[in-house]
Design a protein around this nucleic acid. Structure first.
Length: 804
DNA sequence: TCCAAGAGACTTTTT
DNA sequence: GTCTCTTGGA
């Protein structure tokens, strides 16, 4: 059996690739996951590569798990034929299991497959003690991984407590963002200071400096450090770099368009041993294989840079023209979507300027047209979405709830849709939003565990010292913290010193001693027990469950269930990672996304953001909230590059659909709490080809919208002809009619970027962006003190602002 | 030291 | 509408 069977020519070239660099430009639904898995199987089975020499980077942990699973099946099937001389599915179950176990032990267990963060966290567990920090900071292998909330609270403390700054002027969130961005670019505080002019830059870089020290004092790393520290380590230590360079002979990266500079640097260091990739030519027994699609790059907000993908040929490749290049393969045949959906996606993405030359060819029948549905507001939209789902289900018995996905731009949009689904008793699953591991009770218990492993972790210690309540109050804690600062020792050293506690603890001394006793007891059993039992112990001995039981509310009951779920997660982890310890479990918890835990086995409608949907596919896709300012997001409106990213996001959404696609938008939407505001149809709707769209649009806007969108694409001369035909009358009459329609409550002035206007309720504002033209023109206006508003100049109560 | 009530921010997207 | 943080009173 060959892993090249049943593949098209391009896929064969990708899978059969042995040594050297290869860029696989893989459009949506072109079978890239298949190419990746088959290639790994081919490397192992055909080229005899030792699995421990392969490093494969996936975009989510779930993708990593699935890839391992598929690989196991592929290799077990092959083994079945070689060893038993018969196909896999004719083997007895016991023989199947035996083969799977053997493959697991010999292959899957040895492979390094995972996200950048998971893989390099693992590398740091080996080598972090050899890292030499420019400032002399140190970490040990027991380091904690801090999530966004931990990072933010550390930064907040530095800004407000240490530096005594006004959090209004130095919003911890923005400062956090600036620091994260610097780390993603590989900058240290000095470099950030050079980059940012003036006082503000000085303060932010000083916060960065102190934040780094605070992390080191806690023996903790944030997400960005998991990539930045390995880069610095591999740069500074030739020996360690040499080791990993020799170890990973075959490097594969999926979703290469969403790598950032730091991640690219990691790949470069590992593959080219720190040399300039253009000059690197020792490809003997070595390869780098990256897969991506610039049109699906949707993570620039976390510093992803798709020009890295576009630069691969210059970095590693032979720089030959596409057709002649031996280092480039394009997978351009789409096996997923109907021709209609695909042509719509192609037409949409053609509006972007920054692209790699690529087409996506349909292999399937046209299928149904795309349906466009307009609703009055977000509540009717939710009802209409659910109505559509019920109709689909009623007309097709085969259809499973799990075949349907509702996609939206922001997590907040799920709420109304959930309410409608509940009303109609349709089973559903929301992916994203609050992560399981971010729930309060889960974070509490995880903090206990983190602290048990890493006693320097003061952030975790502070979280649990009085959770559940032990009568240790703010004042006491402040006294202990001050003492630890003065003595320059970790907080735990103060807390665990009975003398210190008796003199500082006051009324809380009893609670403190009790807490110390608890921690000492728990750390004793830490070594002997598997993770799941340690968790059980923490939950019980800390008094956490008893407090929940005493509370006796539905909410407390829910929290108890979640804690049980945490134990189950640990059990599952132990099962999947034989020999996995608590440290490993905490790591997987810190790096897990919500998608990773999505249980696909049950039949439920999936609700998630467009971002989360990347890499997935559904028979039926419903996209809700297709409105200016929501999707595309108002933050992208005055920036052409961001707008292109939103368009790519839309492209991702459209290409998730296999059979049917529905697009919903509302005329009014309540964003939060306050008033409903008028909403305009998304710019992207007008960019889809008319012939593939069926507009089932009630009321105003319906036919007129489709018609005017069509008009928008015609030249001026054509437009006049078109009007003649449409209105069937004299040209003069036609333009009269049009003029009449255009004269709304305000003037039909042509607005341009930079114009000033007055709005009856918002006051004076500046036009920052315009969309469309003619009848469908809409404008984005920035009013002082509020976010940009999207207005329809024909309806909004506005007039030009004159300064005299 | 703890709790309830009220204020205020928040909505882009996530490893 | 919902979550988090602050504040004042017991």
């Amino acid at each position: 059996m060959s892993f090249l069977n049943g593949l098209n020519d391009a896929q064969k070239k990708a899978v059969g690739h042995h040594t050297g660099p290869l860029l696989v430009v893989a459009g949506a639904g072109s079978g890239k996951t298949r190419a990746l898995t088959h290639r790994i199987a081919h490397l192992i089975a055909h080229h005899g590569i030792d699995p421990s020499k392969i490093l494969a980077v996936t975009f989510t942990n779930k993708a990593a798990r699935e890839m391992k699973e598929r690989l196991e099946v592929l290799l077990a099937q092959r083994l079945a034929e070689n060893q038993f001389g018969q196909p896999w599915n004719t083997l007895a179950v016991i023989d199947q299991r035996q083969l799977r176990t053997r493959i697991y032990g010999e292959v899957t267990k040895e492979l390094w497959i995972g996200t950048f963060h998971a893989l390099f966290a693992r590398l740091l567990r080996f080598d972090i003690d050899k890292f030499r920090d420019p400032e002399g900071l140190t970490w040990t292998r027991q380091f904690s991984i801090y999530d966004e909330a931990d990072a933010k609270s550390l930064i907040k403390e530095i800004v407000t407590q240490e530096l005594q700054l006004d959090p209004k002027r130095f919003d911890p969130k923005k400062v956090r963002w600036a620091i994260s961005n610097a780390k993603n670019k590989g900058w240290m505080p000095e470099e950030l200071e050079n980059e940012q002019e003036g006082q503000r830059g000085k303060i932010i870089s000083e916060t960065y400096r102190r934040y780094r020290r605070a992390l080191a004092a806690n023996n903790a790393l944030d997400f960005d450090d998991l990539l930045l520290l390995p880069v610095q380590l591999l740069q500074q230590n030739d020996q360690i770099r040499g080791y990993w360079h020799n170890r990973f002979r075959h490097v594969l990266v999926d979703e290469y368009q969403d790598t950032n500079r730091t991640q690219y640097e990691l790949i470069r260091l590992l593959v080219a041993d720190g040399h300039n990739p253009e000059k690197f030519d020792n490809w003997q027994g070595r390869s780098v294989f990256v897969v991506g699609d610039a049109d699906q790059s949707i993570y620039s907000f976390r510093a992803a840079d798709f020009t890295i993908l576009m630069g691969f040929q210059d970095d590693f490749g032979d720089k030959a023209p596409d057709q002649k290049s031996s280092t480039l393969v394009k997978l351009e045949e789409n096996y997923r979507s109907t021709a209609t959906i695909l042509e719509a996606a192609n037409a949409l993405i053609a509006h972007n300027t920054e692209r790699i030359d690529k087409v996506l060819r349909p292999t399937r029948n046209p299928g149904d047209p795309i349906k466009l549905i307009r609703c009055d507001d977000e509540i009717t939209e939710a009802e209409a979405v659910v109505h559509q789902i019920r109709m689909l289900k009623a007309s097709n018995e085969e259809l499973d709830w799990g075949d349907i996905a509702v996609l939206y731009r922001t997590n907040a949009q799920s709420r109304v849709i959930e309410e409608s689904l509940v009303r109609w008793r349709i089973p559903y699953l929301v992916v994203g939003g609050l992560r399981f591991y971010d729930r309060r009770e889960i974070k509490d218990i995880l903090s206990y565990l983190r602290f048990l492993i890493n006693p320097s972790d003061t952030v975790s210690l502070l979280r649990v010292i009085n959770t559940p309540k032990r009568g240790i109050g703010k004042t006491t804690i402040q006294r202990l913290v001050d003492a630890s600062h003065q003595l320059g020792i970790p907080l735990w050293d103060v807390v665990s010193d009975a003398e210190a506690v008796r003199s500082l603890g006051g009324r809380s001394a009893k609670g403190l001693l009790q807490f110390c006793e608890l921690i000492k007891q728990l750390s004793l059993s830490l070594q002997e027990l598997p993770p799941s039992e340690t968790i059980q112990q923490v939950i019980e001995k800390s008094g956490y469950v008893s407090e929940l039981i005493a509370e006796a509310t539905d909410e407390a009951e829910e929290r108890r269930r979640n804690l049980q779920e945490l134990i189950n997660a640990a059990l599952q982890y132990q099962e999947e990672n034989d020999g996995g310890d608590l440290q490993g479990f905490l790591e997987s918890a810190a790096l897990a996304s919500d998608v990773d835990n999505k249980d696909t086995s049950r039949s439920r409608v999936t609700l998630m953001t467009l971002h989360s949907s990347k890499g997935l596919e559904f028979s039926i896709v419903i996209m809700a909230g297709m409105e200016q300012g929501l999707f595309p997001s108002y933050r992208s409106l005055d920036n052409p590059a961001s707008l292109e990213e939103e368009r790519r996001l839309c492209y991702v959404g459209v290409t998730r659909a296999k059979e049917k696609l529905f697009l919903f938008h509302a005329s009014e939407r309540r964003l939060w709490g306050g008033m409903r505001e008028p909403a305009l149809p998304s710019l992207f709707l007008g960019e889809l080809p008319d012939e593939h769209i069926q507009g089932d649009i009630p009321g105003r806007g319906g036919a007129a919208l489709r018609h005017s969108q069509h008009l928008n694409r015609l030249t001026r001369v054509d437009r006049e002809d078109q009007q003649k035909v449409q209105l069937g009358g004299e040209p003069g009459l036609a333009s009269n009619a049009v003029r009449k329609r255009n004269s709304g409550p305000t003037s039909n002035k042509k607005w341009a970027v930079g114009d000033k206007l007055v709005h009856t309720s918002f006051g004076v504002g500046d036009v920052t962006h315009t969309f469309g033209n003619g009848e469908r023109m809409s404008i984005a206006v920035k009013f002082p003190g509020m976010g940009p508003k999207i207005l329809d100049p024909r309806l909004a109560p506005i007039k030009p602002h004159t300064t005299d």
